[in-house]
């Protein structure tokens, strides 16, 4: 699965900002210390201030795995 890499500054700029009505960017940290957003956020973005997200670098999705204590 592919997601799109952000710098910390870019993540801070996008955090909580609408990319379309009533839907908000949610930059997420991965296990490698990279922030990223998803293809859905890029494809559905109608905010002209953030056209630069179309040029973000694609990276492989590598989520942080917290210990859930569920004995999975």
């Amino acid at each position: 699965m592919i997601v799109y890499k952000l710098t910390a500054e870019q993540a801070n700029e996008l955090q909580g900002v609408e990319y379309m009505k009533d839907c908000y960017f949610s930059p997420t940290l991965d296990a490698d210390g990279n922030y990223f957003i998803s293809i859905e956020e890029i494809d559905q973005c109608v905010n002209k201030d953030f056209e630069w997200i179309n040029g973000l670098e694609p990276i492989k999705y590598n989520p942080i795995i917290a210990d859930l204590g569920l004995n999975l």
């Binding site: 909580g16 009533d22 839907c23 908000y24 960017f25 949610s26 997420t28 957003i37 998803s38 293809i39 859905e40 956020e41 559905q44």
Partner: peptide, 8 residues
């Protein structure tokens, strides 16, 4: 509900 991140 506040929809955050990628939804369809």
């Amino acid at each position: 509900l506040s929809f955050l991140g990628g939804w369809t």
